[in-house]
Design a protein around this nucleic acid. Structure first.
Length: 575
RNA sequence: CGGGACGUGGCGCAGUCAGGCAGCGCACCUGCUUUGGGAGCAGGGGGUCGCCGGUUCAAAUCCGGCCGUCCCGACCA
Protein backbone atom coordinates (compact mmCIF):
# COMPACT_ATOMS: atom_id res chain seq x y z
CA UNK A 1 0.00 0.00 0.00
CA UNK A 2 1.15 3.47 -0.84
CA UNK A 3 0.45 5.89 1.99
CA UNK A 4 -0.64 8.47 -0.57
CA UNK A 5 -3.57 6.14 -1.40
CA UNK A 6 -4.33 5.10 2.18
CA UNK A 7 -7.28 6.42 4.14
CA UNK A 8 -5.64 6.80 7.54
CA UNK A 9 -6.88 10.03 9.11
CA UNK A 10 -4.29 10.55 11.83
CA UNK A 11 -4.89 13.44 14.18
CA UNK A 12 -2.30 15.89 15.36
CA UNK A 13 -4.18 16.39 18.63
CA UNK A 14 -5.54 13.56 20.71
CA UNK A 15 -9.34 13.45 20.88
CA UNK A 16 -10.49 15.23 24.04
CA UNK A 17 -12.99 12.61 25.18
CA UNK A 18 -10.60 9.65 25.08
CA UNK A 19 -8.92 9.05 28.40
CA UNK A 20 -7.62 5.51 27.97
CA UNK A 21 -4.60 4.67 25.83
CA UNK A 22 -6.39 2.30 23.50
CA UNK A 23 -9.20 4.75 22.83
CA UNK A 24 -6.97 7.78 22.36
CA UNK A 25 -4.35 6.09 20.19
CA UNK A 26 -6.72 4.06 18.04
CA UNK A 27 -8.68 7.21 17.25
CA UNK A 28 -5.64 9.44 16.86
CA UNK A 29 -3.89 6.87 14.68
CA UNK A 30 -6.86 6.60 12.37
CA UNK A 31 -7.78 3.00 13.25
CA UNK A 32 -11.31 3.53 14.53
CA UNK A 33 -14.06 6.12 14.71
CA UNK A 34 -17.00 6.24 17.07
CA UNK A 35 -20.51 6.20 15.67
CA UNK A 36 -22.18 6.51 19.07
CA UNK A 37 -21.49 5.36 22.60
CA UNK A 38 -20.32 1.76 22.51
CA UNK A 39 -20.35 1.45 18.72
CA UNK A 40 -17.21 1.91 16.65
CA UNK A 41 -16.34 1.71 12.98
CA UNK A 42 -13.13 -0.01 11.91
CA UNK A 43 -11.17 2.10 9.46
CA UNK A 44 -8.70 0.45 7.06
CA UNK A 45 -5.80 0.40 9.53
CA UNK A 46 -8.01 -0.87 12.33
CA UNK A 47 -9.50 -3.48 10.05
CA UNK A 48 -6.07 -4.87 9.23
CA UNK A 49 -5.29 -5.36 12.91
CA UNK A 50 -8.74 -6.74 13.57
CA UNK A 51 -8.44 -9.30 10.77
CA UNK A 52 -5.07 -10.45 12.09
CA UNK A 53 -6.40 -10.92 15.62
CA UNK A 54 -9.32 -12.81 14.16
CA UNK A 55 -7.03 -14.98 12.07
CA UNK A 56 -4.80 -15.91 15.01
CA UNK A 57 -7.88 -16.91 16.98
CA UNK A 58 -9.18 -18.88 14.01
CA UNK A 59 -5.90 -20.74 13.52
CA UNK A 60 -5.70 -21.76 17.14
CA UNK A 61 -9.34 -22.85 17.22
CA UNK A 62 -8.76 -24.93 14.12
CA UNK A 63 -5.67 -26.42 15.75
CA UNK A 64 -7.80 -27.91 18.55
CA UNK A 65 -10.26 -29.31 16.04
CA UNK A 66 -12.75 -26.45 16.11
CA UNK A 67 -15.15 -26.18 13.18
CA UNK A 68 -16.17 -22.71 12.07
CA UNK A 69 -19.83 -21.68 11.79
CA UNK A 70 -21.65 -18.44 11.22
CA UNK A 71 -25.04 -18.08 12.87
CA UNK A 72 -27.60 -15.26 12.92
CA UNK A 73 -27.42 -12.28 15.23
CA UNK A 74 -31.21 -11.86 15.26
CA UNK A 75 -32.97 -14.54 17.27
CA UNK A 76 -36.60 -15.45 17.86
CA UNK A 77 -37.78 -14.92 21.43
CA UNK A 78 -39.00 -18.50 21.52
CA UNK A 79 -35.43 -19.80 21.49
CA UNK A 80 -34.53 -17.78 24.57
CA UNK A 81 -37.80 -18.65 26.23
CA UNK A 82 -36.84 -22.32 26.02
CA UNK A 83 -33.73 -21.75 28.15
CA UNK A 84 -35.48 -19.32 30.47
CA UNK A 85 -33.09 -16.56 29.59
CA UNK A 86 -35.67 -14.44 27.77
CA UNK A 87 -36.75 -13.52 31.30
CA UNK A 88 -33.47 -13.70 33.20
CA UNK A 89 -31.34 -11.64 30.81
CA UNK A 90 -33.20 -8.49 31.70
CA UNK A 91 -32.33 -5.13 30.25
CA UNK A 92 -28.96 -6.15 28.90
CA UNK A 93 -30.64 -7.88 25.95
CA UNK A 94 -31.67 -5.74 23.00
CA UNK A 95 -35.23 -6.68 22.13
CA UNK A 96 -37.35 -5.74 19.15
CA UNK A 97 -40.39 -6.87 17.23
CA UNK A 98 -40.86 -7.57 13.55
CA UNK A 99 -43.72 -6.29 11.37
CA UNK A 100 -45.94 -9.11 12.48
CA UNK A 101 -45.36 -8.28 16.10
CA UNK A 102 -43.16 -11.32 16.81
CA UNK A 103 -40.64 -10.76 19.61
CA UNK A 104 -36.99 -10.90 18.60
CA UNK A 105 -33.66 -10.39 20.32
CA UNK A 106 -30.21 -9.41 19.17
CA UNK A 107 -27.99 -12.23 20.33
CA UNK A 108 -25.73 -11.44 23.26
CA UNK A 109 -24.30 -14.97 23.24
CA UNK A 110 -25.17 -18.19 21.42
CA UNK A 111 -25.56 -21.10 23.83
CA UNK A 112 -29.17 -21.49 22.78
CA UNK A 113 -28.47 -21.29 19.05
CA UNK A 114 -25.69 -23.87 19.19
CA UNK A 115 -27.52 -26.17 21.58
CA UNK A 116 -30.41 -26.07 19.12
CA UNK A 117 -28.07 -27.02 16.26
CA UNK A 118 -26.63 -29.77 18.44
CA UNK A 119 -30.00 -31.49 18.48
CA UNK A 120 -28.92 -33.00 15.19
CA UNK A 121 -26.10 -34.86 16.91
CA UNK A 122 -27.74 -38.18 17.64
CA UNK A 123 -24.99 -40.62 18.53
CA UNK A 124 -22.22 -40.65 21.11
CA UNK A 125 -20.03 -41.71 18.16
CA UNK A 126 -20.30 -38.16 16.82
CA UNK A 127 -18.90 -36.67 20.04
CA UNK A 128 -16.92 -34.72 20.95
CA UNK A 129 -17.54 -31.65 18.81
CA UNK A 130 -16.06 -28.15 19.08
CA UNK A 131 -18.02 -25.54 17.17
CA UNK A 132 -17.12 -21.90 16.90
CA UNK A 133 -17.85 -18.69 15.11
CA UNK A 134 -16.55 -15.14 14.99
CA UNK A 135 -19.68 -13.05 14.99
CA UNK A 136 -21.29 -9.89 16.31
CA UNK A 137 -22.78 -9.80 19.79
CA UNK A 138 -25.09 -7.13 21.11
CA UNK A 139 -25.32 -6.19 24.77
CA UNK A 140 -27.09 -3.14 26.08
CA UNK A 141 -24.35 -2.30 28.55
CA UNK A 142 -25.35 0.21 31.22
CA UNK A 143 -22.15 2.09 30.58
CA UNK A 144 -19.97 1.47 27.54
CA UNK A 145 -16.48 2.77 28.21
CA UNK A 146 -12.76 2.86 27.54
CA UNK A 147 -12.86 2.81 23.75
CA UNK A 148 -13.06 -0.74 22.45
CA UNK A 149 -12.84 -2.31 25.91
CA UNK A 150 -16.52 -2.29 26.75
CA UNK A 151 -18.90 -1.74 23.88
CA UNK A 152 -22.46 -2.64 23.01
CA UNK A 153 -21.80 -4.26 19.65
CA UNK A 154 -18.69 -6.40 19.20
CA UNK A 155 -17.27 -9.36 17.39
CA UNK A 156 -16.68 -12.34 19.59
CA UNK A 157 -15.12 -15.68 18.94
CA UNK A 158 -17.54 -17.89 20.77
CA UNK A 159 -17.14 -21.64 20.84
CA UNK A 160 -19.17 -24.46 22.25
CA UNK A 161 -18.06 -27.97 23.09
CA UNK A 162 -20.29 -31.02 23.12
CA UNK A 163 -19.31 -34.14 25.03
CA UNK A 164 -20.95 -37.25 26.36
CA UNK A 165 -19.91 -36.72 29.97
CA UNK A 166 -17.97 -34.62 32.45
CA UNK A 167 -14.65 -36.28 31.63
CA UNK A 168 -15.15 -35.33 28.00
CA UNK A 169 -16.01 -31.78 29.01
CA UNK A 170 -12.81 -31.61 31.04
CA UNK A 171 -10.83 -32.56 27.94
CA UNK A 172 -12.59 -29.99 25.74
CA UNK A 173 -12.10 -27.36 28.43
CA UNK A 174 -8.38 -28.17 28.65
CA UNK A 175 -8.01 -27.93 24.89
CA UNK A 176 -9.57 -24.49 24.98
CA UNK A 177 -7.31 -23.53 27.85
CA UNK A 178 -4.30 -24.45 25.72
CA UNK A 179 -5.68 -22.70 22.65
CA UNK A 180 -6.31 -19.53 24.64
CA UNK A 181 -2.83 -19.60 26.11
CA UNK A 182 -1.36 -19.77 22.60
CA UNK A 183 -3.68 -17.09 21.26
CA UNK A 184 -2.74 -14.57 23.92
CA UNK A 185 0.95 -15.40 23.52
CA UNK A 186 0.73 -14.72 19.81
CA UNK A 187 -1.15 -11.48 20.44
CA UNK A 188 1.59 -10.32 22.78
CA UNK A 189 -0.78 -10.32 25.76
CA UNK A 190 0.59 -11.52 29.11
CA UNK A 191 -2.68 -13.15 30.07
CA UNK A 192 -2.91 -15.12 33.28
CA UNK A 193 -5.56 -17.80 33.77
CA UNK A 194 -7.53 -17.27 36.96
CA UNK A 195 -10.40 -19.03 38.70
CA UNK A 196 -13.56 -17.04 38.10
CA UNK A 197 -17.18 -16.73 39.03
CA UNK A 198 -19.51 -18.14 36.40
CA UNK A 199 -22.13 -15.46 37.01
CA UNK A 200 -25.30 -15.64 34.96
CA UNK A 201 -23.83 -18.30 32.71
CA UNK A 202 -24.13 -21.01 35.31
CA UNK A 203 -22.17 -24.24 35.20
CA UNK A 204 -19.59 -25.92 37.32
CA UNK A 205 -16.48 -23.85 36.83
CA UNK A 206 -14.86 -21.19 34.77
CA UNK A 207 -11.49 -19.69 34.03
CA UNK A 208 -10.80 -16.13 32.96
CA UNK A 209 -7.73 -14.97 31.05
CA UNK A 210 -6.65 -11.70 32.58
CA UNK A 211 -4.19 -9.12 31.30
CA UNK A 212 -2.80 -6.86 34.03
CA UNK A 213 -3.61 -3.24 33.18
CA UNK A 214 -4.87 -0.28 35.18
CA UNK A 215 -7.49 0.25 32.48
CA UNK A 216 -9.15 -3.06 33.34
CA UNK A 217 -12.35 -3.52 35.27
CA UNK A 218 -11.58 -6.62 37.32
CA UNK A 219 -9.35 -7.28 40.30
CA UNK A 220 -7.30 -10.44 40.35
CA UNK A 221 -5.95 -11.85 43.58
CA UNK A 222 -2.60 -13.40 42.99
CA UNK A 223 0.10 -15.17 44.94
CA UNK A 224 3.58 -14.33 43.77
CA UNK A 225 5.14 -17.42 45.27
CA UNK A 226 2.85 -20.38 44.54
CA UNK A 227 0.98 -19.01 41.51
CA UNK A 228 -2.51 -19.09 43.01
CA UNK A 229 -4.69 -16.66 41.05
CA UNK A 230 -8.42 -15.95 41.18
CA UNK A 231 -10.81 -13.19 40.34
CA UNK A 232 -11.54 -11.19 43.47
CA UNK A 233 -15.17 -12.19 42.97
CA UNK A 234 -14.29 -15.64 44.22
CA UNK A 235 -10.77 -15.46 45.61
CA UNK A 236 -9.99 -16.88 49.04
CA UNK A 237 -7.43 -15.88 51.61
CA UNK A 238 -6.49 -16.95 55.10
CA UNK A 239 -7.34 -14.55 57.92
CA UNK A 240 -5.53 -14.32 61.19
CA UNK A 241 -7.95 -15.66 63.79
CA UNK A 242 -8.88 -13.22 66.53
CA UNK A 243 -8.58 -14.55 70.05
CA UNK A 244 -11.77 -14.09 72.07
CA UNK A 245 -10.19 -15.30 75.28
CA UNK A 246 -12.15 -13.30 77.82
CA UNK A 247 -15.19 -15.25 78.84
CA UNK A 248 -18.30 -13.34 77.92
CA UNK A 249 -21.43 -12.82 80.00
CA UNK A 250 -24.23 -15.39 80.18
CA UNK A 251 -26.28 -13.35 77.74
CA UNK A 252 -25.73 -10.26 75.54
CA UNK A 253 -25.71 -6.96 77.39
CA UNK A 254 -27.47 -3.86 76.04
CA UNK A 255 -25.58 -0.61 76.35
CA UNK A 256 -26.33 2.92 75.11
CA UNK A 257 -24.43 4.29 72.11
CA UNK A 258 -25.97 7.64 71.30
CA UNK A 259 -25.16 8.80 67.78
CA UNK A 260 -22.97 5.81 66.98
CA UNK A 261 -23.66 4.68 63.41
CA UNK A 262 -20.42 3.26 62.06
CA UNK A 263 -17.96 0.50 62.84
CA UNK A 264 -15.28 3.12 63.42
CA UNK A 265 -17.45 5.10 65.82
CA UNK A 266 -18.37 1.98 67.75
CA UNK A 267 -14.70 1.10 68.09
CA UNK A 268 -14.18 4.46 69.80
CA UNK A 269 -17.41 4.54 71.79
CA UNK A 270 -17.79 3.99 75.53
CA UNK A 271 -18.28 0.23 75.96
CA UNK A 272 -17.48 -0.40 72.28
CA UNK A 273 -15.04 -2.87 70.75
CA UNK A 274 -12.36 -2.92 68.04
CA UNK A 275 -13.65 -3.60 64.53
CA UNK A 276 -12.46 -7.20 64.48
CA UNK A 277 -14.59 -7.87 67.57
CA UNK A 278 -17.72 -6.40 66.02
CA UNK A 279 -20.33 -8.04 63.81
CA UNK A 280 -21.18 -6.07 60.68
CA UNK A 281 -24.85 -6.61 59.88
CA UNK A 282 -25.90 -5.78 56.32
CA UNK A 283 -29.49 -5.93 55.17
CA UNK A 284 -29.67 -7.12 51.57
CA UNK A 285 -32.48 -7.98 49.19
CA UNK A 286 -31.70 -11.29 47.46
CA UNK A 287 -34.08 -11.61 44.52
CA UNK A 288 -36.33 -9.34 46.54
CA UNK A 289 -36.14 -11.33 49.81
CA UNK A 290 -34.79 -9.33 52.74
CA UNK A 291 -31.80 -11.17 54.17
CA UNK A 292 -29.25 -10.44 56.89
CA UNK A 293 -25.63 -10.77 55.87
CA UNK A 294 -23.06 -10.88 58.68
CA UNK A 295 -19.35 -10.18 58.46
CA UNK A 296 -16.57 -9.39 60.85
CA UNK A 297 -16.54 -5.65 61.49
CA UNK A 298 -13.28 -5.02 59.68
CA UNK A 299 -14.19 -7.11 56.61
CA UNK A 300 -15.81 -6.00 53.35
CA UNK A 301 -18.61 -7.81 51.56
CA UNK A 302 -17.83 -9.24 48.10
CA UNK A 303 -21.18 -8.95 46.31
CA UNK A 304 -20.49 -11.62 43.71
CA UNK A 305 -19.67 -14.15 46.43
CA UNK A 306 -23.00 -13.39 48.03
CA UNK A 307 -24.74 -13.79 44.69
CA UNK A 308 -22.98 -17.08 43.97
CA UNK A 309 -23.13 -18.43 47.50
CA UNK A 310 -26.77 -17.63 48.07
CA UNK A 311 -27.82 -18.58 44.55
CA UNK A 312 -29.41 -15.20 43.93
CA UNK A 313 -29.64 -13.53 40.57
CA UNK A 314 -30.24 -10.00 41.79
CA UNK A 315 -28.68 -8.62 44.94
CA UNK A 316 -29.09 -5.09 46.25
CA UNK A 317 -28.90 -3.32 49.58
CA UNK A 318 -32.32 -3.20 51.24
CA UNK A 319 -34.08 0.14 51.16
CA UNK A 320 -34.12 2.10 54.38
CA UNK A 321 -37.87 1.57 54.76
CA UNK A 322 -37.55 -2.20 54.35
CA UNK A 323 -34.84 -2.27 57.00
CA UNK A 324 -36.75 -0.26 59.57
CA UNK A 325 -39.89 -2.31 58.93
CA UNK A 326 -38.18 -5.67 59.43
CA UNK A 327 -35.68 -4.82 62.18
CA UNK A 328 -37.08 -1.76 63.88
CA UNK A 329 -33.88 0.25 63.58
CA UNK A 330 -31.79 2.08 61.01
CA UNK A 331 -28.41 1.02 59.62
CA UNK A 332 -25.80 1.70 62.28
CA UNK A 333 -27.70 -0.04 65.04
CA UNK A 334 -28.57 -3.32 63.36
CA UNK A 335 -27.88 -6.81 64.59
CA UNK A 336 -28.99 -10.40 64.11
CA UNK A 337 -29.38 -11.38 67.76
CA UNK A 338 -32.83 -12.78 68.37
CA UNK A 339 -33.98 -12.13 64.81
CA UNK A 340 -36.63 -14.55 63.60
CA UNK A 341 -38.24 -14.89 60.21
CA UNK A 342 -35.33 -13.53 58.15
CA UNK A 343 -32.71 -15.61 56.41
CA UNK A 344 -29.33 -15.05 58.07
CA UNK A 345 -26.11 -15.63 56.15
CA UNK A 346 -22.76 -15.33 57.88
CA UNK A 347 -19.17 -15.27 56.77
CA UNK A 348 -16.91 -18.08 57.97
CA UNK A 349 -14.71 -15.63 59.85
CA UNK A 350 -17.48 -15.28 62.44
CA UNK A 351 -17.75 -19.01 63.15
CA UNK A 352 -17.20 -19.84 66.80
CA UNK A 353 -16.59 -16.22 67.77
CA UNK A 354 -17.63 -15.14 71.25
CA UNK A 355 -18.08 -12.00 73.29
CA UNK A 356 -18.63 -9.76 70.25
CA UNK A 357 -20.39 -6.45 69.85
CA UNK A 358 -23.23 -5.69 67.44
CA UNK A 359 -26.31 -3.50 66.99
CA UNK A 360 -29.33 -4.01 69.23
CA UNK A 361 -31.95 -3.23 66.55
CA UNK A 362 -32.83 -0.10 68.41
CA UNK A 363 -31.35 3.20 67.36
CA UNK A 364 -28.56 4.33 69.71
CA UNK A 365 -28.21 0.92 71.42
CA UNK A 366 -25.74 -1.90 70.89
CA UNK A 367 -25.16 -5.33 72.41
CA UNK A 368 -21.91 -6.66 73.82
CA UNK A 369 -21.07 -10.18 74.95
CA UNK A 370 -22.61 -11.72 71.84
CA UNK A 371 -21.73 -15.36 71.30
CA UNK A 372 -22.39 -16.14 67.63
CA UNK A 373 -23.23 -19.81 68.11
CA UNK A 374 -25.42 -19.19 71.13
CA UNK A 375 -27.17 -15.94 70.22
CA UNK A 376 -27.58 -15.85 66.44
CA UNK A 377 -29.59 -18.32 64.36
CA UNK A 378 -27.30 -18.46 61.34
CA UNK A 379 -28.99 -20.28 58.46
CA UNK A 380 -25.93 -20.64 56.28
CA UNK A 381 -22.18 -20.13 56.58
CA UNK A 382 -20.59 -18.79 53.43
CA UNK A 383 -17.40 -17.19 52.18
CA UNK A 384 -18.58 -13.61 51.70
CA UNK A 385 -15.47 -11.62 52.47
CA UNK A 386 -13.62 -9.52 49.95
CA UNK A 387 -9.95 -10.45 49.91
CA UNK A 388 -7.60 -7.57 50.65
CA UNK A 389 -4.03 -7.18 49.44
CA UNK A 390 -1.47 -8.50 51.89
CA UNK A 391 -3.65 -11.26 53.34
CA UNK A 392 -2.16 -14.73 53.35
CA UNK A 393 -2.48 -17.19 50.47
CA UNK A 394 -4.54 -20.22 51.51
CA UNK A 395 -2.19 -22.47 49.56
CA UNK A 396 1.25 -21.34 50.70
CA UNK A 397 0.77 -18.56 53.23
CA UNK A 398 2.61 -15.86 51.29
CA UNK A 399 1.08 -12.40 51.09
CA UNK A 400 -1.40 -11.96 48.24
CA UNK A 401 -1.40 -9.08 45.79
CA UNK A 402 -4.43 -7.54 44.07
CA UNK A 403 -3.90 -6.66 40.41
CA UNK A 404 -6.26 -4.69 38.17
CA UNK A 405 -6.84 -6.63 34.93
CA UNK A 406 -8.61 -6.64 31.58
CA UNK A 407 -10.65 -9.80 31.04
CA UNK A 408 -9.67 -10.94 27.55
CA UNK A 409 -11.14 -14.42 27.60
CA UNK A 410 -13.49 -16.54 29.66
CA UNK A 411 -14.08 -20.27 29.41
CA UNK A 412 -16.97 -22.07 31.10
CA UNK A 413 -17.86 -25.62 31.96
CA UNK A 414 -21.59 -25.36 31.38
CA UNK A 415 -22.72 -28.89 32.04
CA UNK A 416 -26.14 -29.95 30.80
CA UNK A 417 -28.29 -26.89 31.47
CA UNK A 418 -28.66 -25.64 27.91
CA UNK A 419 -28.63 -29.03 26.21
CA UNK A 420 -31.36 -30.11 28.59
CA UNK A 421 -33.46 -27.03 27.93
CA UNK A 422 -33.10 -27.29 24.15
CA UNK A 423 -33.36 -31.06 24.02
CA UNK A 424 -29.88 -31.94 22.73
CA UNK A 425 -29.40 -35.63 23.47
CA UNK A 426 -27.52 -38.58 22.04
CA UNK A 427 -27.75 -42.33 22.45
CA UNK A 428 -24.86 -43.78 24.43
CA UNK A 429 -23.21 -47.18 23.72
CA UNK A 430 -25.97 -48.87 25.68
CA UNK A 431 -28.67 -47.24 23.60
CA UNK A 432 -29.65 -44.98 26.49
CA UNK A 433 -30.61 -41.38 25.72
CA UNK A 434 -28.15 -38.97 27.36
CA UNK A 435 -28.16 -35.18 27.52
CA UNK A 436 -25.06 -33.68 25.93
CA UNK A 437 -22.57 -31.93 28.21
CA UNK A 438 -21.56 -28.48 27.03
CA UNK A 439 -18.86 -25.92 27.51
CA UNK A 440 -18.75 -22.37 26.18
CA UNK A 441 -15.74 -20.19 25.51
CA UNK A 442 -15.36 -16.56 24.49
CA UNK A 443 -12.79 -14.04 23.28
CA UNK A 444 -13.77 -10.51 22.26
CA UNK A 445 -11.84 -9.59 19.12
CA UNK A 446 -12.06 -5.83 19.58
CA UNK A 447 -11.33 -6.07 23.28
CA UNK A 448 -8.25 -8.16 22.58
CA UNK A 449 -7.14 -5.49 20.13
CA UNK A 450 -7.75 -2.79 22.73
CA UNK A 451 -5.79 -4.78 25.30
CA UNK A 452 -2.85 -5.05 22.90
CA UNK A 453 -2.98 -1.27 22.45
CA UNK A 454 -3.10 -0.77 26.21
CA UNK A 455 -0.05 -2.97 26.73
CA UNK A 456 1.98 -1.96 23.69
CA UNK A 457 2.32 1.79 23.36
CA UNK A 458 4.61 4.61 24.41
CA UNK A 459 4.47 8.41 24.45
CA UNK A 460 4.81 8.52 20.65
CA UNK A 461 2.00 6.14 19.88
CA UNK A 462 1.22 2.49 19.35
CA UNK A 463 3.86 -0.22 19.24
CA UNK A 464 2.16 -3.21 17.61
CA UNK A 465 3.67 -6.65 18.02
CA UNK A 466 4.57 -7.99 14.54
CA UNK A 467 1.77 -10.62 14.37
CA UNK A 468 -1.00 -8.01 14.67
CA UNK A 469 0.65 -4.92 13.20
CA UNK A 470 -1.38 -3.27 10.43
CA UNK A 471 1.80 -3.30 8.34
CA UNK A 472 5.04 -5.00 9.21
CA UNK A 473 7.27 -2.32 7.76
CA UNK A 474 6.96 1.24 6.54
CA UNK A 475 9.33 2.64 3.94
CA UNK A 476 9.71 6.30 4.69
CA UNK A 477 10.97 8.22 1.69
CA UNK A 478 12.29 11.29 3.42
CA UNK A 479 12.19 13.45 0.32
CA UNK A 480 9.44 12.18 -1.94
CA UNK A 481 10.34 14.63 -4.69
CA UNK A 482 13.86 13.32 -4.94
CA UNK A 483 13.50 11.01 -7.93
CA UNK A 484 16.31 8.70 -6.91
CA UNK A 485 14.87 8.31 -3.42
CA UNK A 486 11.37 7.75 -4.75
CA UNK A 487 12.66 5.12 -7.16
CA UNK A 488 14.65 3.39 -4.43
CA UNK A 489 11.58 3.43 -2.17
CA UNK A 490 9.43 1.88 -4.86
CA UNK A 491 12.01 -0.76 -5.58
CA UNK A 492 12.29 -1.64 -1.88
CA UNK A 493 8.54 -1.81 -1.66
CA UNK A 494 8.49 -4.34 -4.51
CA UNK A 495 11.33 -6.35 -3.00
CA UNK A 496 9.61 -6.55 0.39
CA UNK A 497 6.37 -7.54 -1.26
CA UNK A 498 8.16 -10.31 -3.15
CA UNK A 499 9.47 -11.62 0.16
CA UNK A 500 6.04 -11.65 1.77
CA UNK A 501 6.59 -8.61 3.97
CA UNK A 502 3.53 -6.40 4.37
CA UNK A 503 4.96 -3.01 3.64
CA UNK A 504 3.57 0.48 3.53
CA UNK A 505 5.35 2.92 1.24
CA UNK A 506 5.22 6.44 2.62
CA UNK A 507 5.44 8.30 -0.68
CA UNK A 508 3.52 11.34 0.55
CA UNK A 509 4.81 14.74 -0.41
CA UNK A 510 5.24 15.75 3.20
CA UNK A 511 8.10 16.74 5.40
CA UNK A 512 10.15 13.95 6.93
CA UNK A 513 9.13 14.91 10.45
CA UNK A 514 5.46 14.40 9.64
CA UNK A 515 6.18 10.98 8.21
CA UNK A 516 8.28 9.88 11.15
CA UNK A 517 5.65 11.03 13.61
CA UNK A 518 2.85 9.25 11.73
CA UNK A 519 4.84 6.03 11.39
CA UNK A 520 5.44 6.08 15.14
CA UNK A 521 1.84 6.95 15.94
CA UNK A 522 0.39 4.03 13.97
CA UNK A 523 3.00 1.73 15.48
CA UNK A 524 4.50 -0.09 12.51
CA UNK A 525 7.23 -2.36 13.95
CA UNK A 526 9.96 -1.55 11.40
CA UNK A 527 10.79 1.59 9.50
CA UNK A 528 13.14 1.79 6.55
CA UNK A 529 14.20 5.37 5.99
CA UNK A 530 15.32 6.22 2.48
CA UNK A 531 17.16 9.49 2.79
CA UNK A 532 20.47 11.24 2.53
CA UNK A 533 22.59 8.13 2.95
CA UNK A 534 21.07 6.68 -0.20
CA UNK A 535 23.87 8.34 -2.15
CA UNK A 536 26.19 5.88 -0.37
CA UNK A 537 23.85 3.00 -1.09
CA UNK A 538 22.66 2.94 2.52
CA UNK A 539 19.25 3.14 4.19
CA UNK A 540 18.32 3.18 7.87
CA UNK A 541 16.45 0.42 9.62
CA UNK A 542 14.63 1.51 12.80
CA UNK A 543 12.83 -0.74 15.23
CA UNK A 544 9.72 0.92 16.63
CA UNK A 545 9.81 -0.85 19.98
CA UNK A 546 13.37 0.11 20.87
CA UNK A 547 14.00 3.10 18.65
CA UNK A 548 17.36 1.67 17.66
CA UNK A 549 18.55 2.54 14.17
CA UNK A 550 21.00 0.65 12.03
CA UNK A 551 22.55 1.59 8.69
CA UNK A 552 22.01 -1.17 6.14
CA UNK A 553 23.02 -1.45 2.48
CA UNK A 554 19.98 -0.76 0.35
CA UNK A 555 20.57 -3.99 -1.54
CA UNK A 556 20.49 -6.06 1.66
CA UNK A 557 17.68 -4.50 3.59
CA UNK A 558 14.79 -6.47 2.06
CA UNK A 559 16.43 -9.79 2.86
CA UNK A 560 17.37 -8.66 6.31
CA UNK A 561 13.86 -7.46 7.16
CA UNK A 562 12.13 -10.48 5.68
CA UNK A 563 14.31 -12.73 7.79
CA UNK A 564 13.83 -10.74 10.99
CA UNK A 565 10.09 -10.55 10.57
CA UNK A 566 9.82 -14.25 9.79
CA UNK A 567 11.72 -14.96 12.98
CA UNK A 568 9.39 -12.75 15.00
CA UNK A 569 6.37 -14.51 13.54
CA UNK A 570 7.93 -17.84 14.42
CA UNK A 571 8.64 -16.82 17.99
CA UNK A 572 5.19 -15.47 18.51
CA UNK A 573 3.53 -18.52 17.02
CA UNK A 574 5.56 -20.68 19.36
CA UNK A 575 7.04 -22.61 16.43
C1' C B 1 -29.55 4.41 37.92
C1' G B 2 -26.53 8.10 41.53
C1' G B 3 -22.43 11.84 41.22
C1' G B 4 -19.31 15.05 38.06
C1' A B 5 -17.72 17.39 33.45
C1' C B 6 -18.72 18.70 28.61
C1' G B 7 -21.42 19.79 23.62
C1' U B 8 -18.95 26.18 18.91
C1' G B 9 -16.08 23.85 10.83
C1' G B 10 -12.61 17.24 10.33
C1' C B 11 -9.38 17.64 15.28
C1' G B 12 -7.92 20.81 19.59
C1' C B 13 -9.91 25.18 21.77
C1' A B 14 -11.45 30.74 22.92
C1' G B 15 -15.90 33.48 23.05
C1' U B 16 -21.03 32.34 27.45
C1' C B 17 -20.04 35.31 33.74
C1' A B 18 -21.44 40.97 31.54
C1' G B 19 -26.74 39.49 24.89
C1' G B 20 -24.76 43.33 19.69
C1' C B 21 -20.92 41.07 12.47
C1' A B 22 -18.87 33.50 14.89
C1' G B 23 -13.12 33.61 16.10
C1' C B 24 -7.97 31.13 16.90
C1' G B 25 -4.37 26.93 16.09
C1' C B 26 -3.96 22.43 13.32
C1' A B 27 -5.94 20.01 9.06
C1' C B 28 -7.92 21.11 3.84
C1' C B 29 -7.49 23.94 -1.42
C1' U B 30 -4.18 27.41 -4.76
C1' G B 31 0.66 29.72 -5.53
C1' C B 32 5.79 30.64 -4.27
C1' U B 33 9.85 29.29 -1.15
C1' U B 34 11.42 25.22 2.02
C1' U B 35 12.53 19.72 2.44
C1' G B 36 15.81 14.29 8.10
C1' G B 37 11.63 15.21 13.43
C1' G B 38 4.67 17.72 13.03
C1' A B 39 7.87 24.46 7.71
C1' G B 40 7.26 29.92 6.10
C1' C B 41 4.63 33.66 3.39
C1' A B 42 0.31 35.10 0.52
C1' G B 43 -4.55 33.97 -0.96
C1' G B 44 -8.95 30.75 -0.24
C1' G B 45 -13.09 27.04 1.06
C1' G B 46 -15.79 25.05 5.08
C1' G B 47 -19.77 26.09 11.01
C1' U B 48 -28.45 25.70 11.29
C1' C B 49 -22.72 27.45 17.88
C1' G B 50 -26.38 19.55 20.03
C1' C B 51 -32.10 19.98 19.53
C1' C B 52 -36.91 22.27 20.73
C1' G B 53 -39.32 26.19 22.99
C1' G B 54 -39.26 30.94 25.69
C1' U B 55 -37.45 36.11 26.95
C1' U B 56 -35.53 40.26 23.95
C1' C B 57 -35.17 45.27 18.95
C1' A B 58 -31.27 41.48 19.05
C1' A B 59 -29.43 34.88 21.77
C1' A B 60 -23.46 30.69 20.92
C1' U B 61 -24.33 33.88 25.32
C1' C B 62 -30.21 34.56 29.54
C1' C B 63 -34.52 30.97 31.05
C1' G B 64 -37.14 26.02 30.56
C1' G B 65 -37.23 21.22 28.57
C1' C B 66 -34.93 17.41 25.87
C1' C B 67 -30.88 14.77 23.42
C1' G B 68 -25.86 13.30 23.17
C1' U B 69 -20.65 12.28 24.81
C1' C B 70 -16.88 11.32 28.51
C1' C B 71 -15.27 10.20 33.65
C1' C B 72 -16.24 8.02 38.83
C1' G B 73 -19.58 4.72 41.15
C1' A B 74 -23.58 1.11 40.80
C1' C B 75 -24.05 -2.69 37.24
C1' C B 76 -21.78 -6.19 33.85
C1' A B 77 -21.21 -13.47 30.64
Amino acid sequence: MRWSDLFAPTLRDAPADASTANHRLLVQGGFIRQLHAGHYSMLPLGMRVYVKVEQIVREEMNRIGGQEFLTPALHPASLWQRSGRWESMGEEMFRLADRKGADLALGMTHEEVFADLAREISSYRDLPQIWYQIQMKFRDEPRPRSGLLRVREFAMKDSYSFDLDDEGLDRSFDRHHRAYTRIFERLGLPAIPVAASSGAMGGTGSTEFMVPSPTGEDDVVRCGSCGYAANRERAASAVEPVADNEAGPEAPVRFPTPGVRTIEALAEAEGGAPADRQIKTMVMALDGAVTLVLLRGDHQLELQKLRDGAGAAEVRPAQAAETVERLGASPGSLGAVGVRGLRILADHALAGRRNLTTGANEDDWHLSGVDVGRDIAVDEWLDLREVAAGEACTVCGSPLEVVRCIETGHIFKLGRRYAEALGATVLDPDGVERTITMGSYGIGIGRAMAAVAEIHHDDKGLVWPVPVAPYEAVITVAAARDEAAAAAGSRLYEELGDRGVEALLDDRDARAGVKFADAELIGVPWRVTVGRALADGVVELTERATGTTERVAVDDVADRLAETIAEMHGLMAGV
